[in-house]
Design a protein around this nucleic acid. Structure first.
Lengths: 238, 238
DNA sequence: TCAAAAGTGTTCACAGTACACCCATGC
DNA sequence: GCATGGGTGTACTGTGAACACTTTTGA
């Protein structure tokens, strides 16, 4: 029965799986702990939930402290509650995954941590069940980005179609036909074409686009079907 | 920093959003509390997490106690952590949603609770943030069942195509063309056609099908696209 | 024989794919 | 002018939607 007074109170943490994209690979931000216990071990960024804040508040604070950025895309991933998951004390952890523009991040390095970006497929061993958290976050990112306009969060304010296509190709490890990709993205009407071109990666130059914030916010929850469904039978792997 | 000893310990609960289907409507199972605090108020089934069990263990126990059933479909929905959500004491709640075969359930009524099935669109006011939990669970059920073979969990071991179609129509509140629906379901190859017919709802009778458990388990995580995507523009509402 | 529900067949439109082709520009 | 990457045009194909049609059987 619900007898409050007789129940166990449990230590509650949040941990953040932070993704970034450097133009080539999808990256994961982890920190090397500079304090005990487990000093020197790699870990996700995290912290304990205070009595005055929700898990979302806690995660936001952590992200702000680490990156200096407000308004980072962030959502609850899963809550990890195995009795043995934390070897110091029984702790449950509410995991969040976050997407940030790696360029904005670079400008502001927090000194309290020692954060390092690793390619999403080559990151070091992490403490506790953090590796499992990352794997789940990767799955969820792929799952969700297949139908929702999510990956824009990883790009700068203006970006080109080839850049966007590269991002999708990195995330899914498949190649897309550029013509079909362009048309599909354009057809969502979520982007505004700018007059300016990026001339760094080609002679002709590629037009910049930016997210149409109004439409983006309005459609963030609807289905968009960016990625061909893996219908179990046929899928073109890179 | 991660100083374990100085941190707040928090009361942790699980709450279960239990769905059933009676052949006509999607139903929600709630209990009327027979104990203080909030005696007489409607509430989701729940309980506190013990120091010796995970949230999943706790949820499984609660479901078992309530329904007498093992192996119920169940998954984590979301963790609710607002500081003010529980008016007795700051409590976080890990919400689970569960799908059960309402027929099996009927055979075994637990006396410890006073459970009542309500139609999913007409349930009473619930304590704390339980209404919000139910709304989120409805959303997730619709979202997930659109692509995963999930709704079979709500049906008896053998069922007919018209029954399955009715279930989908209740969940999404749209009507499907029976021909197209049949073909779509058959094409998944997840069902085995039985020789037996159900003759209760028509003169001709409809063949029973059962889930091919092997294929079902294998494909539970792949995309199946049961429901036409609401492409923002066109959708046939009942 | 007729009504009612189960189940099949057929047409049509359109989205997704593949791929050929044109464009702009630096060297 | 030619190589390179950006971008457009187009034909083909398979899936999903619409709906007409056949089947079965109880009353």
């Amino acid at each position: 029965m619900r007898r409050y007074s007789q129940q166990t109170r449990i230590l509650c943490a949040v941990d953040c799986i932070i993704f970034g994209y450097d133009g080539i690979d999808l990256k994961l931000l982890v920190i090397q702990r500079s304090f005990q216990p487990f000093k020197g071990k790699w870990s996700l960024v995290g912290g304990f939930i205070k009595s005055t804040e929700s898990a979302e508040d806690a995660a936001r604070h952590i992200l702000k402290d680490l990156t200096g950025l407000d308004g980072i895309y962030m959502e609850q991933l899963h809550t990890f509650t195995n009795v043995q998951r934390d070897s110091v004390e029984r702790t449950i952890s509410i995991a969040f995954f976050a997407l940030i523009d790696i360029q904005k991040y670079r400008q502001q390095l927090s000194e309290d941590f020692h954060p390092v970006w690793f390619p999403i497929n080559q990151f070091p061993e992490l403490i506790f069940d953090h590796t499992q958290m990352v794997e789940l976050a990767k799955e969820k990112l792929r799952y969700k980005a297949a139908q929702h306009p999510l990956l824009f969060e990883l790009l700068p304010d203006k970006f080109t179609m080839p850049q966007l296509q590269n991002l999708y190709e990195s995330v899914y490890n498949i190649t897309f036909d550029k013509g079909n990709f362009n048309r599909k993205i354009i057809s969502t009407q979520l982007l505004t074409k700018l007059k300016e071109k990026d001339k760094l990666s080609s002679k002709k130059g590629a037009f910049y686009y930016k997210v149409d914030t109004k439409k983006y916010n309005a459609s963030a929850h609807s289905f968009l079907n960016f990625i061909p469904r893996p219908t179990v039978l046929s899928q073109s792997i890179k």
